[in-house]
Nucleic acid binder design. Structure first.
Lengths: 210, 210
DNA sequence: TCGAAAATTAAACAATAGTTCAGTTTCCGG
DNA sequence: CCGGAAACTGAACTATTGTTTAATTTTCGA
């Protein structure tokens, strides 16, 4: 008997299914941008894809699983930039990189959707996973700030408080940013935020990013 | 015929009723701190007061009205500190005052409840009122920043972007602050935030608040 | 092209939670 | 202390919405 149980790791069908899953996540993020998780119905999400809500159950076991997938989407992005940041030398430059990339995630990947922050409704295991992921990223930021202080590049602030302020400024983007909305451009926003938030840490008034 | 239509402006009964309304608002803010508006049921709110949810309808016409009252609670606080700030001289000192007071509202009055930010569910008229109030406060902050730039006290940033960052840092407190939670103390937090966020604007590296 | 598996749908189901209402208890001013 | 008004309750009602199931359509590999 040939091995029919385990096909190729990414068959055509599997890739198509994975693509559809991402479309659903994208639709959920878009729908959630307006109303938040609870006010977003499965009809809202399905309607954006031109299908009925029952079809969603072929890709996710329930509504919470869609929310969790949205969280994972954002978490994997955060993990990626945390990894990439290791190649950037110097606490100031590294923190600047992290802020600019985080702003990019907020404006591009999540498009300002607050879905990736509503964590209280998730079942305990899923909530723990998400919180662990966020804590990890928070820890990376704190590490960078602490390193900058030790090296004398930053002044002696409480890293915990500084990181809360930074994450607040960036995450709050979900509350006011709307893609295509006039005025503020994503790229400029990331630079402006990094510039502003870095200067608050700089020991000297000169350029925060040498 | 004596004037029985309009009793004294604050009879005993009226004051008692007003007090009960405030208790309900407080309970809603507490309950909403854990789960957010949609996940907070009328049973949650009523339960904290030892009554049944039907009793709430003697004080508010529906659930949305309770949310609106929570918003108005926070808006009136913001308006108050905006007014008080006019007595503080100099953009740097005034901005510092506003940040510290705003932090105090987040930690003391709202106790970290996100209820005063969930605006999308409100009916159009109520939503417009809340947004108008928040815009007004935002405008005050922008004015202070712009004034500081004109006077040469702050460097030339985009006031809009800076205020988004400031409001994000402060409002995000609702996401992580828990009253009585160990570690961070409200008073110290306000000073630390004001210090950090002011330095990002300061033209010179010296003390931001002279 | 054929047939099985995947995708989707329509309809019914279930559970939650906001709302209403008639009736009961509590409160308080005269 | 009395009587009416205010406060509150229990229960029923309703609307929304997540979930399940059986049936139908579509897709795609052999």
């Amino acid at each position: 008997m040939p091995n029919t149980i385990q096909g190729p790791l990414s068959s055509h069908r599997e890739r198509k299914r994975a693509r559809r899953r991402r479309e659903i996540i994208r639709a959920a993020l878009e729908a959630g941008r307006e109303k938040g998780y609870h006010a977003t119905t499965l009809d809202d999400i399905a309607g954006r894809l031109g299908i009925r809500k029952a079809a969603l159950y072929h890709y996710f076991p329930d509504k919470d699983a869609i929310l969790l997938a949205c969280h994972r989407e954002s978490l994997s992005e955060l993990e990626r930039i945390a990894g990439d940041s290791r190649a950037v030398e110097g606490p100031a430059r590294r923190l600047s990189f992290l802020i600019r990339e985080h702003v990019r995630i907020m404006t591009e990947t999540l498009e300002g959707s607050p879905l990736a922050f509503e964590v209280t409704v998730l079942p305990a295991a899923a909530r723990a996973e998400v919180i662990r992921g966020r804590d990890r990223f928070e820890g990376v930021l704190r590490g960078v700030v602490a390193e900058g202080i030790e090296g004398g590049e930053f002044r002696a602030v409480d890293p915990k408080v500084a990181v809360f302020a930074i994450l607040g400024a960036v995450n709050w983007i979900a509350r006011w940013y709307r893609p295509g909305g006039g005025g503020i451009q994503p790229a400029g926003l990331g630079d402006a935020f990094a510039d502003y938030l870095l200067r608050g840490l700089a020991r000297e008034s000169g350029r925060a990013r040498p």
